[in-house]
Design a protein around this nucleic acid. Sequence first.
DNA 1: TTTCTAAGTCAACAACGCTGACATAAAAGA
DNA 2: TCTTTTATGTCAGCGTTGTTGACTTAGAAA
Lengths: 169, 169
Amino acid sequence: MQNASRNSPPIRADQRLFLTDEQLRTGTELLFFAYRDFIGDPDRLLEERGYGRAHHRALHFICHRPGITVARLIDTLAVTKQSLNRVLRKLIEDGLVEQTVGENDRRQRLLYLTPAGKALEETLATPQRERLRTAYLDAGPEAVAGFREVLHRLMDESARQSLGSNSEW
Amino acid sequence: MQNASRNSPPIRADQRLFLTDEQLRTGTELLFFAYRDFIGDPDRLLEERGYGRAHHRALHFICHRPGITVARLIDTLAVTKQSLNRVLRKLIEDGLVEQTVGENDRRQRLLYLTPAGKALEETLATPQRERLRTAYLDAGPEAVAGFREVLHRLMDESARQSLGSNSEW
DNA sequence: TTTCTAAGTCAACAACGCTGACATAAAAGA
DNA sequence: TCTTTTATGTCAGCGTTGTTGACTTAGAAA
């Protein structure tokens, strides 16, 4: 591990060709295929239980930002209130998500996962975590740093503020 | 440019902490936000013209793999024949995609973009290319190599074979 | 000739985005 | 206090894009 060229083609980080149209196009394709396969694992699990991708996203952010308000979750996911509500209602009915009334502002609904919600979130997160872990391990820390750096620069400025604070960003 | 720490927080590529659960979780979020914003630009352009994301994907792969067969495109996009057909039919009706009969196998339909199709593909690709270019430029070649390396390792083996051949992979 | 394969089509359905309209409760301001 | 704004929830309807299942046609292959 830690050796980027262990079982992959050589990568010439020093080349001046990293900005060609060809490189930029394949970057698009790399993102497409990697993202598609990355969400494929949980997608299959979700289907078995009658949930979709939107439920997964909500579970993830409620899990890792416990007590998040509905408004902030709408912001984070970049969807409409109506869209989120349909998903949230089902998660609450099914006992995966709980709401409490905001302490400062009693209009707010603070969202938390129940134990059942945490269990499902964990089930969904596991294959993704393992996929990431394997890729990270084989690519090595420098490659991971570059991966994170470029992704961070690809997102909109506003999205950077939605990133978890325990990170280095 | 080329300096990863120019206007971003320091990245400690040498740290042994790149495999913590926290790092893996934020990797998931980085992918989510970056992918979402990356497809956001063309999404807005598509909407104005009455197309969706599926049309974009078809245009992209037909553009960069001219003469691709329907079966291979179905494979590449990982959707059903019926799903692709709905999209393809509209693109053909609108004069953005052309079909020719396969030379070896006359059952095959080889797909190509018309000049109008190329023009739309270019319009959609431009904001993405510029977003990637800026991120690449600011992150530098080593970071880009790491970005590509990790994405490549994240996708399924079968997807790697769908990648354009002009690349280093 | 029979069988298999590539492509196209019809119908129905589900997930998940969207807009618009409206309701309620609570905060905030005049 | 009265009014306005804000946070949330809900109903109805629509569009895109994914799915399954069934069936057709043309051409390749056995």
